[in-house]
Design a protein around this nucleic acid. Structure first.
Lengths: 256, 256
DNA sequence: TAAAAACCTTGACGCTACGACAAGGTCAAG
DNA sequence: CTTGACCTTGTCGTAGCGTCAAGGTTTTTA
């Protein structure tokens, strides 16, 4: 038998057979005068073993180990380990598919949507626009979702969830997004700036601060993101940034 | 922010970030005078998006496509395709684990054991020795499991299964294996050779031929493996090969 | 103030299990 | 004689980085 016949008989490629030779899975067979490899049935049996084991998911290294020892102990160990590994993979796939199912049932999708499941419950409440203030918030929450250390991240999520659960605060926050978007092309002196800053304070910031005061952890958000905060404001339109700046200033005065 | 801070903030390695640059997932940022890359929050947001998408299982190519289009259409398509792919993987893992479970519940394991599920029902009936005639048979069945074209393979399995189901034939076959093993060191002229050949004919071959005569497909086995058969015999001990040769000769005479 | 530790830069090689291709030799049939 | 189907060796490519290597910069420490 030449290599092509062997490969066809077992159902693998000739490249695979040669590769198994290089890896030491099969010893190099005799050659004919012209240099062709010649195989016998024994080789086909070995190759069939290799094919079945790789089809089960063993790596070539594991296959070599299994074929090397003539006891069945190694095979049992390897298969048990493989099963444990497959169990892990299966579980991971199951989780990912669950998240995918959650995402796919939404009518619109955004690159910032695939967040952690906990954060998804928060982000899912935001207005589903494709540009504007809500999107900036979504981006931020997406970043905080991966960058905040664990206790803080969970606190933030809890806070946002509480805010969303309080229907009065939620309703006011929802009104704020389109209002902020209207300021995208406005001037810093626009009269709506002061008005929105007020609403931001009384509608959102103040309730949040009250919640924070009740929470055990204290105020993480104001300190934690302070350094990067200026960068964040720089990406907003001037009038929008001004709203936030004024609102924060008001809150700071009240706290002092 | 330098590359290390960015990477730490989002929770990826600096090598990954540089790799994303090379792949065009993130544009190369500004450099400081000494050549260090400097990043802003925008980059962290982008990197966080990438991390979440890759964690879901998207390839970097898909991530690039998703981030490139500002509509959500592409994302939905990619995620749906990914889900279908994951469903396939999950099903495959499920099947492999089912086979693994079957294998692992056996008390001893052999490199020829992991055959196709159908063949496993046949092979599982063989004596669970680690050397000798039964092992030769197992090797053969393992090879035939992958090398026989589909209608023939199923016929062979059906035939073997029928043989195993017929309790009388099965009992005789079970007796033959240890008897054959005893001939491993015997001479070709050993008196047990003729006796065993007889038992092989009346106990196994004749019943099989009768079954084949009833079967619609006709006799595939005698023709199909004829060329390789001599090689098979060459691997047995001389007395063992002689048993088979004589038994086949008897059967051929009867059929003529 | 100097040394050490911790950054950064580019570049090259490694991993799996082969597939694709190149450049050439061998063999049977038309 | 050519054509087509085989075979040989060798190199490159895959995805997503990890892991040195060799050298420069910045910060911290003794």
């Amino acid at each position: 038998m030449r290599i092509g016949e062997l490969a066809a008989m077992v159902g693998v490629s000739t490249r695979a057979v040669r590769y198994y030779h290089r890896c030491g899975l099969i010893p190099e067979p005799e050659r004919t005068a012209n240099g062709y490899r010649t195989y016998g049935i024994r080789d086909a049996v070995t190759l069939a073993r290799i094919k079945r084991l790789t089809e089960l998911g063993l790596s070539l290294d594991e296959v070599r180990d299994v074929l090397a020892d003539d006891q069945g102990r190694e095979l049992r160990e390897v298969l048990a380990e493989l099963d444990a590994d497959l169990a892990r993979q299966e579980e991971q796939i199951r989780r990912r598919r669950a998240r995918l199912a959650n995402l796919l049932e939404q009518e619109t999708l955004h690159p910032d949507d695939p967040v952690s499941p906990e954060m998804a419950t928060v982000v899912g409440r935001l207005p589903r626009t494709r540009a504007g203030m809500a999107d900036v918030d979504r981006s931020w929450l997406g970043l905080l979702d991966v960058s905040l250390p664990e206790p803080d991240r969970r606190e933030l999520i809890e806070l946002m969830r509480a805010m969303g659960a309080d229907s009065e605060t939620a309703a006011r926050a929802d009104e704020l997004y389109p209002a902020m978007d209207e300021l995208a092309t406005a001037d810093v002196d626009d009269p709506r700036v002061a008005e929105l800053a007020n609403q931001l304070v009384i509608g959102v910031l103040q309730p949040v601060l009250d919640m924070l005061a009740d929470a055990p952890g204290g105020d993480v958000a104001p300190d934690g993101i302070a350094p990067e905060f200026e960068e964040f404001l720089a990406e907003l339109a001037p009038a929008q940034a001004e709203v936030i700046r004024r609102a924060l200033a008001q809150v700071a005065r009240k706290q002092a």
